[in-house]
Amino acid sequence: MMPVFVNPLDERAATSRSRAPRLDGLQGKTLALFDISKPGGSVFLDRLEHLLVEKYGVAGVVRVMKPTYTKPAPEPVLEGLRFVDGVIEALAD
């Protein structure tokens, strides 16, 4: 008789979502720079903000920061990303 095992794994089927449409360019767009609050992230994003505005004609930059990098962003923080054309996230140190 074939042995029968009890499945010890999470059996939920993975779901997939389509990716957000890509921007056709940066000129005139409003972008969010998303700082996960790791040390050094602001230094990187300050420089990026300068380049985006001066070199690529970005119309506006919104700076959004997570209260801690150890946890997912809370809803009020995500709310700040809802009305921009694109988001650039400074992931780590």
Binding site: M2, V4, F5, N7, P8, L9, E11
Partner: peptide, 24 residues
């Protein structure tokens, strides 16, 4: 939550190796 599924293991498969290859 849902009950766990049951997995029938063919007789010619080593059960210990099955657990490793199945990601348990």
């Amino acid at each position: 939550g849902p009950r766990a599924s049951r997995l029938e293991i063919p007789d010619d498969v080593d059960p210990y190796e099955y657990c490793m290859s199945a990601g348990f």
